[in-house]
Amino acid sequence: MEIDPFIFRLSIFILSIFIGYYVVWSVTPSLHTPLMSVTNAISSVIIVGAIIAGLSGSSENIFDIPNIFGFLAIFLAAINIFGGFLVTQRMLQMYKKKKKDK
């Protein structure tokens, strides 16, 4: 009997939860705020779905209701992607070690 592809996706999902568990425990507590902003940025990979939704249907009527929802989702996710990564970068730039020349 053939295995439903869903089972494979479920396997990826479960294993990723475990990876997430161990990786996140190793994050140093002083970087917990950047952790939140970067997880926020990467969860905006949902833009993949938004792009498919925005470009769905025939090219004549790209302003159908499903497309418009897609466009809105692209807009929101794009804010998150750029905002999330850039603010993380800005924060991480500030973490400096003690200067040696003392």
Partner: peptide, 11 residues
């Protein structure tokens, strides 16, 4: 999306 969702969820 599945990997990211799981990572962010557990984080």
């Amino acid at each position: 999306l599945i990997i990211t969702g799981a990572l962010v969820g557990s984080s």
